[in-house]
Design a protein around this nucleic acid. Structure first.
Lengths: 163, 163
DNA sequence: GCCATCATGTAAAAGGTTACATGATTTT
DNA sequence: AAAATCATGTAACCTTTTACATGATGGC
């Protein structure tokens, strides 16, 4: 399980309420992870009980701002550095790519064109993000990686669609 | 849900027993999807009940070989071509990449080096697979894509490790 | 005869999604 | 005053993992 680590990671960047975390799972981590508030609130309660996070502020509408404790920071570092990543997680896009060979040429072209559109939209979003961003923000390198991977994908998809 | 579609896809390539499917989820789909036999057998039963697959052979040890029916083939095509792919699936590697910025330089280098070793091992496995493969097999293009993405990843990881 | 592998299933527990439920503030 | 947004929680349901359970066959 590592919803707990995703939450610890987001809280390490900035102390937040469960509601704000919910927004970050939609925005920053968009395609990488999605967690609903119904999962976030109970997990925050468990993390607090385990002493990995603590409530550092309360807002006017009953909101609770959580931050990492020292134990939380230690656990996050341990997970990132010492735990072998679980690389076996399911990826529907890869399964579809693998199965595309089964389609006849017309269907295959249709699918590749749809995928290409999606990659191009994502590239546009990343370019936009990079433009509006502080150039020496540490996240810049990750955006660069995303752009390079999307370029490879777009090239490959165009080749396939033209076959 | 699309474990059912992954199974339909594998059966479209070749009629198989549940045991063989279980092996394919480990081998062909390795990092893209992993399903245990405890999930596969009940799903095969449901697919048979729904008329999407049928038993076409029985082996000496009580094995049942399943194949797609016409309905199964139709449903697989519908899913691949007409269903909008679910691109929001969780990806632990991406979360780790996103959180790496939180680490101090020594830890970050350690993590990038570990990732680089993994990418290089995967590249070697893909090269080996390509070598031992029929050159006009339709799967060749997917291997090519994997190699290109891994090259981008390796380059990026080396840049990051040297920073 | 023994061990590895083939082969299928069920049950319990954990993780994740959808739906239900409520209420406070801020904006229009 | 109404609507949007902020804010938290629980319950029912579905999916996935781990553990339990059993047995046949082929090679040594």
């Amino acid at each position: 399980m590592s919803l707990r680590h995703a939450i610890l990671g987001l809280l390490a960047r900035k102390p937040s309420t469960g509601y704000e975390l919910s927004g970050m799972f939609d925005a920053s981590l968009r395609s990488a992870w999605h967690a609903r508030h119904s999962q976030i609130y109970p997990e925050l309660a468990r993390l607090e009980e385990g002493g990995l996070v603590e409530v550092v502020d309360r807002g006017p509408r009953g909101s609770k701002t959580y931050a990492l404790t020292d134990d939380g920071r230690t656990e996050l570092r341990r997970w990132l550095v010492d735990d072998e990543p679980d690389r076996s997680q399911r990826n529907e896009s890869a399964v579809r790519l693998f199965l595309n060979q089964l389609l006849d040429p017309a269907d295959r072209r249709k699918v590749f064109t749809r995928d290409l559109e999606h990659v191009e939209a994502e590239t546009a979003a990343l370019l936009d993000l990079r433009e509006r961003m502080d150039p020496d923000e540490p996240f810049a390198a990750q955006i660069e990686l995303g752009l390079r991977i999307n370029e490879v994908l777009a090239t490959w998809l165009r080749e396939q669609a033209e076959r």
